[in-house]
Write a protein that binds this DNA or RNA. Structure first.
Lengths: 207, 207
DNA sequence: CCATCTTTTGAGAGTTACTATCATTCGACT
DNA sequence: AGTCGAATGATAGTAACTCTCAAAAGATGG
């Protein structure tokens, strides 16, 4: 509805056809409707049918765009940003340090782009068990990506155990930090918190 | 059926009433039936109704014993063993070392008790996404327990971030090691693998 | 041994997240 | 304008739960 975008104004690529633009719109409409309803009545109390209704599409369409209800909340575009940020670090830098800097850079970016959604997502991730689980499964896609990047850096195989341990531990720890951040009312500085988290890992989990 | 146990033979506690004994039996019947069917036809292809049928109880009963289908696989009694093993370590020992020894001891114990089930569980945990997620949410109960134990040892609060980071990282890493073990056909020595895992954590995730 | 009380069980109906199918519609391209 | 392929919507079906209530079975006191 609010598509007053001139065809030539599209920033990020070769101008999209109407079809593509509509897809993006629909996707956004579904997500926005969902986030709004989740805010109002909670995740579990909001059936997909009602989201569809609110987004003015059929339930089938919702499932075509998002394979599961969880994906409506969790689908993100953070990975490419993180990947780029890590790749930008000098090759000699030790892995954990590269991750640290990459995470911090991309985190600032994300928070700057849409802090409201970031906050809401964090809250949902902590409060809804299904989402927490899904997020805890860090190796999902993000982990795989990180393994690939670190494999190149270190010359190890992408499925090397030690590599996987590192990646898994980092993601799990960061996720936990996010939960902590949310528990405390999202008041602390998240970047500082993440730095602290990576410090603990970097010093071998000493207390 | 195979309950030729004399009332006075019960080892682990004050002799149970018939009611209690039946509950244990039922629980076991359900789990056994489930494991058998999962083995034969796979987890997703086995509806709870069929498990109920095989265990000779009603579907309602299955859900009374196990809140979710996942719980039939994942409910374990490892935590108490782990807790005891860690508590048995000298108080001066650094946390990660205490965890290492505790894990190794209780792991040997578990493997000795029922290696077959341990193997099958590991396989299911890797192959079924729902189970993998559930397991990845290590903080669930095990993590909470470990936090408590380490809090006592270190004098920190049980919800101290750094403490939680440590626990989360350890569990996530061990879980990943288990997945690796299963991927390789469960052929390597699991204790060695876990030691290696904890080494990586202990040396600050250096590669 | 019977009566009663409590706990466990089973049966039924209902909700919801998904899956599959198929006809319709709508943008793309000639 | 007309055709083609992709997106949509309607419909039906499966399976994991949840709730409720009545029947069955173990515990308990006389």
């Amino acid at each position: 509805m609010a598509s007053a975008e001139t065809p030539s104004a599209a920033q990020p690529g070769p101008r999209l056809g109407l079809r593509e633009r509509k897809k993006i719109q629909t996707r956004q409409a579904i997500r926005r409707a969902a986030y709004r309803l989740f805010e109002q009545q909670g995740y579990d109390a909001t059936p997909v049918d009602r989201i569809a209704e609110a987004a003015d599409v059929s339930p089938s369409t919702v499932f075509r765009y998002f394979p599961t209800k969880e994906d409506i909340v969790l689908t993100d575009e953070y990975d490419p940003a993180l990947e780029a940020a890590i790749r930008a670090r000098p090759a000699e830098e030790p892995p954990v340090e590269a991750i640290r800097q990459g995470v911090i850079v991309s985190m600032r970016d994300i928070v700057a782009r849409d802090m409201t959604e970031f906050r809401q997502r964090a809250r949902l991730m902590r409060e809804v068990p299904a989402l927490r689980r899904r997020a805890a499964e860090g190796m999902g896609e993000s982990g795989h990506m990180l393994c690939g990047v670190l494999a190149e850096r270190t010359g190890r195989a992408a499925d090397d155990i030690e590599l996987r341990i590192v990646v898994t531990a980092v993601f799990a720890a960061m996720n936990e930090a996010l939960m902590y951040w949310d528990e405390r009312g999202q008041t602390e500085d998240i970047v500082t918190l993440i730095e602290r988290t990576l410090d603990v890992l970097g010093r071998g989990l000493t207390l």
